[in-house]
Write a protein that binds this DNA or RNA. Structure first.
Lengths: 333, 333
DNA sequence: ACTAAATTTGAATGCGGTTACAATTCGGTT
DNA sequence: AACCGAATTGTAACCGCATTCAAATTTAGT
């Protein structure tokens, strides 16, 4: 309703003056400012974002593409992003990809339409070369997953070494027959965690039985089913490493359904440390990712890019730690 | 980079023609369309959203204000919203209020700036009169919570009758001393669920011991602590109704920490049926809310408002149901 | 009191599209 | 050959704001 014109009229000044009161008050007389601000207050005036954006050719909206907002891991990261976005006057446009690549790509148009000034990708479904092309034109930062050989600002954890750390923990508890329930092999994340597992096993000269490595898809269901599969072999593992917590829950429930107990019969370790991991019984031993920090760091990076600041560094590997709880125990066999 | 001018030049037509190819192709010659589309494809041209919005004074962005994105209940609703938003060409701007009223109010400016064409409130922190005022000027729909006496399109469940249903279930299992861990009393939602509890108890002529009603804040922690409090009384309840699932988890874990078991010693029922409720042990008996549907319905309503369609109805109460699992059992005392 | 400099203000322009309106083309009629 | 209507295209005027540049006003200095 009330635009800058209305304010100008009521304050008896030109629209230029109103505009200046809002953006360069130091160039306006004290008294005029007061008068104008009063009217602004009065009319509840807020400058039209579209007009401003068109004129200034810059927006304060950023886009975050998430594979699945329902996953608490991502929503935690999102909260981190939102938090520093707000502090700096940005709004976040949510792009839930629903685990669908086409949809994910569709969001790139938001950037082309200048609806968002930059983008944070929490996914890694889009092909590396496309990401690189986009990143060359617009501010983009990758969070959580990184793309091999792509030189785009990234914040993540070292999945390989963390998975190694988790595996070593199991080995040091005396476990030798260790099963692994992996994430989908078409995700970097899934592959890296598996790689860490292999590295640790090799380092301790332990053989990895191919049968004991099963591919899941990060869902509870898949964790449950793959564990059932592992339990079906004559020679069951004494410990299982699930590539994320949800699958670990599935594995544990499968084990218990078979009448065995965790950790006495089989130890289970997870990855992510989602909110629920400490509530679950047994409380889950897992690798904790600094989700919130990943979010804040990613957003800070993006702001840096958007404001064209000089960056000393654009690749950040955040610390993660092993959280010891009740789902692992010394190997008894 | 490439705007409509560039396209026009390369296609050898005026910008008006380019614009028409995109919006009213039936008024453009077949051949011209082809030529223009080719150039558009070539340049990867996408019309500038700000310019379009300014001219048309309408945007395809909507705002969703969420109390806490980390809560899977809200993220489920959000997914429902996002889903139909996408189908209809809308984008969703995320407003995480971080349980902070000031922040929540701040998002109203997004509407005033015309950055969003409408808003869905998943919270009910803002004062009723303010909501009403805003709703008079902009399309707004309330989801999850409703504001008493406010005539704003709403989709929700009937918290009172659902809470009554849950309580009746407990009563029918033979429980007489039933505890209640409520949500915060300053939320409608919290109050309604408590009201339903009272109604059911009264209906069956059961006394509600004031000591057995404790106020939590919907967090796991508070559920745990309030349960500890209930257990400290000499005469403990045989069943407990927690106003949401997270608190129910807290209650159960508190009970078990005291050496008692659920449901044999004490039955526990929750509310919401979040993803985790079926994974938890014991699997939680709870009231299931149609989260996804709440989201889709809310977005459909909002679209209706924004496109000024005639609405037969603007208040929707969605069905919920009692999900029977393993956390409740017949009263043995 | 008068002028130069500094301060404060307003008129006009354009950001990149959409669209009303005018102009042009073209085949068909008279 | 002149004329007409339909189809197609171009011209230009906005949309609301920021900003340049010049005009108006105030301040300061002599």
């Amino acid at each position: 309703m009330s635009g800058i014109k209305e304010v100008a009229k009521q304050a008896n000044v030109s629209i230029a003056t109103v505009s200046r009161v809002l953006s360069k008050p130091e160039s306006v007389a004290e008294e005029t400012i007061k008068k104008v601000l009063e009217v602004i207050e009065d009319l509840n005036y807020q400058p039209n974002a579209a007009a401003r954006q068109l004129r200034m050719s810059e927006t304060t909206t950023i886009l975050v593409v998430v594979p699945d907002i329902t996953n608490t891991f991502f929503s935690d990261v999102l909260r981190g992003i939102e938090c520093v976005a707000l502090e700096n006057g940005y709004q976040v446009l949510l792009g839930d990809a629903g685990n669908n690549l086409e949809q994910e790509k569709g969001y790139l148009n938001i950037l082309r339409q200048k609806k968002a000034a930059g983008m944070i990708l929490l996914t890694a479904g889009i092909e590396a070369n496309i990401v690189e092309e986009i990143a060359a034109q617009y501010p983009v930062v990758l969070a959580c997953e990184y793309l091999e050989g792509v030189n785009v600002p990234t914040v993540s954890i070292d999945n390989v070494s963390s998975a190694r750390k988790a595996t070593e923990y199991l080995i040091n508890l005396g476990h030798k027959r260790i099963g692994f329930i992996s994430g989908p092999m078409n995700s970097v994340l899934g592959r890296d965690r598996l790689k860490g597992f292999y590295q640790a096993m090799a380092q301790y000269n332990l053989k990895v039985e191919p049968d004991l490595v099963q591919e899941g898809n990060f869902s509870y269901r898949s964790g449950f089913n793959m564990m059932l599969k592992l339990l079906a072999y004559s020679h069951t593992p004494t410990a299982v490493f699930a590539a994320n917590d949800e699958m670990a829950f599935g594995a544990i429930n499968a084990i218990e359904q078979k009448g065995l107990t965790v950790p006495q019969d089989i130890s289970v370790i997870g990855f992510d440390n989602i909110k629920f991991s400490s509530i679950f019984k047994p409380a889950l031993t897992t690798i904790s990712q600094p989700t919130f920090d990943i979010g804040t760091k990613a957003m800070e990076l993006l702001i840096g890019l958007m404001t064209k600041q000089e960056m000393e560094k654009t690749q950040f590997i955040l610390e993660n730690k092993l959280v010891l709880r009740d789902s692992c125990y010394k190997c008894s066999r």
